[in-house]
């Protein structure tokens, strides 16, 4: 325990603290504004907490806006996207990790290629494709687009998790009498739960906060998702900051719940003891 060591530890902790404050302060501000009554919003100057706090923005958003509908749409779109992508990415990632097949290289190149275009470039052609199919202005169309854009990255993510699981395990299962698919289901998937949780979480949050496609493919409140809905608090003449922030705070809830649900799988180390000693 030298002086240098202590100083280093203190500096390290301080740096982490500064980072956490930097990262969480906007969230705090969101919360603060959401409970500030309108008459205090501009009159009190910059304060860490308003002299009078209330939930009126929340009540207004829940009772007099389309927010509950946006919220429901977003949950449907994000959850569906997350589940579909994770299933597809698990299967594709497993194939990339375990099999050699004709055209594998080109499939990987193609998947990487899709990740290289700025999405803005693709909005117009995608709109043109979906429109005659009746998939604009529908949650299904949005899910389809989100799935398409999230599968490549999620596949690479899942592949890296499968790569970390020894091939011996499913070979042992196959010799024990399992088909390859059963070995995948009963031996490999349970060991990939952390990876699946990470992929679910990643895709869910990506879909939850997506704005560009949601804005371009959907018109009208019926199929709007939450990020688009937030924009409705911006009117021509003013911005309803209090209501917007209240909606924002509520939008955090599902994401938080979701991560709370999967966090125990995010802890790695389940494969310990599989091989060697």
């Amino acid at each position: 325990m030298t002086r240098r060591f202590i100083l280093g530890t203190v500096a390290h902790r301080l740096a982490i603290l500064v980072y956490i404050i930097f990262a969480l302060f906007p969230l705090y501000w969101l919360l603060k504004v959401s409970v500030t009554p309108n008459d205090l919003l501009y009159s009190e100057g910059v304060r860490m907490w308003p002299s009078r706090a209330g939930l009126e923005h929340y009540i207004f958003v829940l009772e007099h806006s389309d927010f509950p509908k946006f919220f429901k749409n977003s949950v449907i779109v994000s959850a569906s996207t997350a589940f579909i992508v994770t299933i597809l990415a698990s299967l594709a990632g497993y194939a990339l990790s375990r099999f050699t097949f004709r055209g594998k290289y080109w499939i990987v190149v193609l998947m990487l290629l899709t990740q290289m275009f700025p999405l803005v470039m693709l909005v117009a052609p995608i709109f043109k494709m979906l429109s005659p199919l009746g998939l604009t202005n529908s949650l299904g169309g949005l899910i389809l687009v989100y799935v398409a854009f999230n599968v490549p990255f999620a596949t690479f993510l899942m592949q890296s998790f499968f790569d970390g699981i020894p091939k011996d395990l499913e070979e042992a299962a196959m010799i024990d009498g399992a088909t390859r698919f059963r070995a995948f289901r009963q031996i490999i998937l349970p060991l990939t739960l952390p990876g699946i949780a990470a992929t679910l979480g990643f895709v869910f949050t990506a879909a939850w906060s997506e704005l560009l496609f949601a804005l371009m493919l959907i018109s009208g409140a019926d199929a709007s998702t939450f990020p688009v809905g937030l924009l409705s608090f911006v009117s021509k003449f003013s911005v309803d900051f209090g209501q917007m922030m209240a909606a924002g705070v509520m939008a955090l809830i599902p994401a938080c719940l979701f991560f709370l649900l999967i966090q125990r799988y995010l802890v790695q180390g389940l494969t310990a003891g599989a091989v060697k000693g």
Binding site: P166, L169, E171, A172, M174, I175, D176, T179, A274, K276
Partner: peptide, 20 residues
């Protein structure tokens, strides 16, 4: 034949025990 249909047992160098 698939491995499962050959009715053989194998002990791996890595043991390959199912960790879960």
């Amino acid at each position: 034949l698939q491995p499962k249909d050959r009715d053989i047992a194998m002990v791996f160098q890595s043991y390959a025990l199912y960790p879960h």
